[in-house]
Design a protein around this nucleic acid. Structure first.
Lengths: 206, 206
DNA sequence: CGCCATCCGTTACAGTTTTCACAATCGCTC
DNA sequence: GAGCGATTGTGAAAACTGTAACGGATGGCG
C-alpha cells in the first residue's frame, strides 16, 4: 500500500524535529504528544496523527522517547545526510545567506556562489570565491547540487530557476519577491518577509 | 452577515497584489482570473472565489481592471497606509533586516532597533541608532509600534515577544528558529529558511 | 442590432485536513 | 499480579478548502 503523505504533514515534521532537538539538549528523555503540542501550539491529536503516517513511535502511558523519535524524524526527512547547495545572486541578501551560519550545522553545505556582476567575480565571501554566472551550467554538470538558493532580482528569477532545474537541481529556495514556475518534480519554497507582513496587516486593520 | 474570511485566503491576497503590481508596471490594463492564475500557479476558480469574499471586482467577458483591483486589495489588506515597525536584535541578521530596502517602499517604516549588547548601543545602522533593550518598554509607550521584527537568539525569543506584546505590538515577524507563543489577538509569522529546506529534503530523498 | 466568444460570481460538490473519542497498552504501585 | 492513571494509535465524524460547472453579463464584430 503506497500511501501518499499530505504535504502539510511533511511541512510540520521539521518543527517537530526542532522541538525534539531542544528537548534533547535539555536532557528530556520522554515527551508526550500533549507536551510537544503545547510547545508548538499544535493539538496532541495532530501530532499523533502526523506521526502515524510513518509508524508507531510512542508507548501508551509514557509518550515518545525524545532521542529515538528525533532520529526517526531525521531519517524520514532525509536530515541524516549532507545536502549540496549553491547560491545564485550575491548582492546584499545573497551575501548574508552565504555567511549565515545556520545551514551548515543542519547538513546543508554551500558549495558555490554565483553572480552575474563581473565585479564580484573572484571576491571571497564566507570561504567561497564568487563565480561568474556563466559557469553555473558547467559547475552543476561536474558537482551535482541538490538545492539552489536564489537571491537575484525578481525579473531574473525565473531564468535562474530554469537554469538550475535544467542543471539537475531538484529543490529551490527562492528569496526573490516573485513566484517562479518549476516542473512538478521540483520542490520550491518562497521566503518573502514582505508578504508575511502584508498578511498580518489585514488583522491589524480590524 | 459577518462572514469570517479564512486565513488561507488572506495569505494569498498579498501574492495577488504583488502580481497585479507587476502587471500594472508593464502597462497591462485588464487581467483575467485565468491569466492571473497562470502567473501564480493558482486555479482561476480559486482566485475568483477568494475575491468573491470581498465583493465583485470583475467584469464578465473582460476580466479585472488591474489598477482598480490592486487598489481594492491594498485597501482590504491595509496596505494603503504606513505601519510602524521596530526591530529587536541587531546581530548579523538584524542588521541585514534593518538595512534591507524592501520594507519601506511597501509602507513598513522601521522606527527603531534594539539590542541587549551594550557595545552596539548608539551604533548607527541604516539611518537608525541602536538602542539598549532596556529602553524598549519606554519607547513603545511613547511611539506605538504595529509590528515587531524579532531577530534574537532562539532562547531569548519568547521573552522578547512577550515584551513586545505587553507594549502593545499586535503583529510579530519572527526570524528565530523557535515557535513563540502569542495571545490569540496577536498575529505572528515565522521565517526560517532551514525549516523550508528541511521539508524539501523529504522529496529529494524519494 | 443581434450573435458570439469570453469570463465573472456563485452554488453545489469533491477532496483534504483536523478533531474527536475510545479501545488498547504501558509502567507503576501495592 | 491486579488495579490504576496516563497516553498512544486510529477509525469515524466534522470542519475546512478547493474545484467544477453553469447562468448571466459584457464587449466586439459584422
Amino acid at each position: 500500500m503506497v500511501l501518499e503523505i499530505p504535504e502539510v504533514v511533511i511541512n510540520r515534521l521539521p518543527t517537530y524535529a526542532r522541538a525534539l532537538a531542544t528537548l534533547a539538549e535539555n536532557g528530556e528523555a520522554v515527551v508526550s504528544s500533549q507536551a510537544l503540542g503545547e510547545a508548538l501550539d499544535v493539538t496532541p491529536a495532530q501530532i499523533r496523527k502526523d506521526l502515524s503516517y510513518f509508524g508507531r513511535f510512542g508507548k501508551q502511558g509514557r509518550g515518545y522517547n525524545v532521542q529515538s523519535l528525533l532520529a526517526r524524524l531525521r531519517e524520514i526527512l532525509g536530515l541524516d545526510r549532507q545536502w549540496h547547495v549553491c547560491v545564485v545572486g550575491v548582492g546584499r541578501l545573497g551575501q548574508a545567506i552565504v555567511e549565515y551560519g545556520g545551514f551548515e550545522p543542519q547538513g546543508f553545505k554551500i558549495l558555490a556562489a554565483f553572480d552575474s556582476n563581473p565585479e564580484l567575480e573572484g571576491r571571497s565571501i564566507g570561504n567561497l570565491s564568487v563565480q561568474n554566472l556563466d559557469e553555473l551550467g558547467a559547475f552543476l554538470a561536474e558537482r551535482p547540487v541538490d538545492i539552489g538558493i536564489v537571491a537575484v532580482p525578481a525579473e531574473n528569477t525565473q531564468e535562474i530557476v530554469d537554469r538550475l532545474v535544467s542543471g539537475g537541481v531538484r529543490a529551490v529556495l527562492n528569496y526573490a519577491p516573485t513566484t517562479p514556475h518549476v516542473p512538478a518534480e521540483v520542490s520550491i519554497r518562497n521566503i518573502d518577509p514582505v508578504l508575511a507582513m502584508q498578511s498580518m496587516t489585514y488583522y491589524l486593520k480590524l
